[in-house]
């Protein structure tokens, strides 16, 4: 039992490592699904840093997802950049945008912050639609190549699956390192009482902006991964509804937990797979499930795991 307590993380890691060959049985479809799940995990973990730990509401996370995706798509499809280079440029670009926006926008509180983030999401989407010559407009951007690193093309879905999940693990590790560092503890202090934190001489705006930039860069990275897997981009996938979807994944999985988003993303991406025969009911069902989670499981799906976990070890310790 003690061993399990110390090395539990091997279990999910083993699951991720062996999934394509075991459960998915080499099926590109199931690997493909988990690629989308992985992309959304990156998005949601970033949002968790921002909302769960720092308490800053965002209803426009898809904006940074879009900037990353379109930076990658445009640079590789139109200007012949290497996907890796385009991805890095996208991350830098998104980082600069987030840094410039961060200070003024994060000075806003609660609903005003929600509105400002939503507005930025709309601005990005309307610009994508408006600037047809660059983005392909509402009809979409075609002919985006598969991802490749140093000449090695990752067109095989299983290879790409490992690539995406390697990045997911790096993102999660980074996020854990951040929240467990003194920096992360300051974020939590800002969350619980921003005025007090400021009274202690913390430059709260600086901290909030930094975490905002980090979350946005993660989103941009997710966007690049998304682009090369789809091979095609359209603004429909980056609207406020996508932002809300990410928000829902976060609360469903468990906010302020880093691991919760994995469950949330899994759940939200698998739900349509389970309900495709009753698609008219899907909207109602997803709403009801979310209500049940919010009322009965304030810590989300991850809360159930921790509850079971604690019970197990409470017994074992006796």
């Amino acid at each position: 039992m003690k061993l399990l307590k110390q090395f539990w993380w091997i279990l999910p890691l083993a699951f991720i490592a062996f999934y394509p060959v075991t459960l998915a049985g080499g099926s590109p479809y199931w690997s493909g699904l988990l690629i989308f799940v992985g992309i959304y995990v990156i998005l949601t973990v970033g949002l968790d840093l921002l909302m769960g730990y720092t308490g800053q509401i965002s209803v426009g996370h898809a904006a940074y997802f879009a900037i990353g995706a379109y930076a990658s798509g445009i640079l590789t499809a139109k200007y012949g950049f290497s996907p890796l280079g385009a991805m890095v440029i996208g991350m830098v670009l998104t980082g600069i945008v987030a840094w410039a926006l961060g200070r003024p926008v994060l000075a806003l509180k609660e609903y005003y912050l929600a509105m400002a983030t939503l507005a930025f999401n709309e601005i990005v989407v309307t610009l994508i639609i408006g600037l047809e010559w660059l983005t392909g407009g509402a009809s979409g951007l075609r002919d985006i190549p598969s991802f490749s690193i140093f000449g090695l093309v990752l067109s095989n879905h299983v290879h790409y699956y490992y690539f995406v999940w390697a990045i997911v693990i790096i993102v999660i590790a980074c996020s854990l390192a951040v929240v467990r560092s003194p920096f992360g503890r300051t974020l939590v202090a800002i969350h619980s009482d921003e005025v007090a934190a400021r009274a202690f001489g913390v430059d709260t705006a600086k901290y909030k902006t930094r975490i905002f930039v980090l979350a946005s860069v993660f989103a941009s990275m997710a966007g690049s991964l998304f682009t090369h897997y789809m091979g095609f981009l359209a603004p429909d996938d980056f609207g406020v509804l996508t932002s809300i979807n990410i928000l829902v994944m976060l609360f469903l999985g468990g906010i302020g937990t880093i691991f919760g988003p994995i469950l949330g993303a899994f759940f939200m991406k698998l739900l349509p797979e389970l309900t495709y025969q009753i698609h008219d009911y899907e909207l109602l069902l997803s709403g009801l499930i979310l209500i049940i989670v919010l009322v009965f499981m304030p810590k989300g799906l991850f809360g159930i795991f921790t509850a079971i976990w604690e019970k197990m070890f409470a017994k074992a310790d006796k």
Binding site: S27, G32, L33, F36, G140, D237
Partner: peptide
């Protein structure tokens, strides 16, 4: 038959499902 939910992402996903599953 699958539903693409009027979204390109879902369209791509169900197409993938049709092809491989």
């Amino acid at each position: 038959v699958y539903d693409d939910q009027s979204s390109p992402e879902t369209g791509s996903r169900v197409a993938q499902r049709l092809v491989s599953k």
